[in-house]
Amino acid sequence: MSQSNSKKLGELMPHDHHDHDHAHAVLPSEPALRVKAIETVLTRKGLIDPAALDEIIDTYQNKVGPQNGALVVAKAWHDDTFRAALLADPMGVIAELGFYGRQGEHVDVVENTPDTHNMVVCTLCSCYPWPLLGIPPSWYKSDAYRARSVREPRAVLAEFGVTLPETTKVRVWDSTAEMRYLVLPMRPKGTEGMTVQDLAKLVTRDSMIGTGFPKDPA
């Protein structure tokens, strides 16, 4: 067995000229069973550690999520010096806060103004700034959002209850490379004097994707 595996390792050349074979067809078609089948074979071969899987799931379920991005936004609202530094060197400032990592290696922050509203999509897959926002929601990964956001962003925004004035330009960022984008929404009125912690509670995930506005203060 190990001999045949060694032979296979010697042939680790990608298949460049033809579409790949579809080995998944041998697995159960029910998706939960399909995952289980792959997890089982990889575990039995010693290629994955089930405890590592639990750790990955726990990371994205409980540790990394939109609260990270919300802190960045709240700090930018709260402190003009921080905001200027964030816009000038987003990656440096974000890494300093500890929000560097997988799917967030190259981040730019794009600022909403009365003239320009920014909105983020990945039409080719579902690229998303994981260390700042976590795992993307279903709608972000949906065909409808991927297909329509570049052609009719205002119609898509209306489905989120967002209406923009005609004088505001919509700028849709299609993340086709490894750049990831965080929208810096406009600070809501009536939030003067609020702490960073209280401001962060107003920052919604959707406001950092550009499909929503922050909450108004209570």
Partner: peptide, 12 residues
């Protein structure tokens, strides 16, 4: 699929 026609509403 960017810009294609025919998809339904986005469900937030």
């Amino acid at each position: 699929m960017g810009a294609r026609f025919g998809d339904g509403p986005v469900v937030p």
